[in-house]
């Protein structure tokens, strides 16, 4: 299975990638919302999940999520938000927009693995 990790922080992308390594998933990194779409295009939409940061330059994670949900080809790909936006109302906004899961930063490695396992 392939998953996309979208975060403008390389450090954060690597942390998530490291946590997923034992699961044998193929990981595609994206540094922005635009790149998510580019990567989906490249991989023909065959992606098992997208881990999405909220605050990214250009298209934000939330905007990207909304566009994905409107897109016939990609709307069924589960999107999991991983963000510092931690207020309850932010979480509900993301959920309403179609996010399947929500993990707030910072997290421990155990929390991350638990989150990944429960969502995919």
């Amino acid at each position: 299975m392939k998953v996309i990790i979208a975060d403008d922080s390389k450090v954060m992308r690597n942390i998530i990638q490291n946590a997923m390594r034992p699961m044998g998933t193929e990981i595609i990194q994206a540094g922005s919302g635009q790149e998510v779409f580019e990567q989906l295009e490249i991989h023909g939409g065959k992606v098992g999940a997208i881990f999405m940061d909220w605050n990214m330059p250009g298209m934000t994670g939330l905007e990207c999520l909304k566009l994905l949900k409107k897109n016939e080809k990609y709307k069924d790909i589960p999107v999991l938000m991983i963000s510092t936006e931690s207020e309850d109302d932010k979480v509900s906004i993301a959920r309403e927009a179609g996010a399947k899961g929500y993990l707030t930063k910072p997290f421990t490695n155990e929390e991350l693995i638990k989150f990944i396992n429960s969502s995919i």
Partner: peptide, 10 residues
């Protein structure tokens, strides 16, 4: 950058 982001966010 990520650390300051997390401190601000939490």
């Amino acid at each position: 950058a990520e650390i300051v982001n997390m401190i601000g966010g939490t």
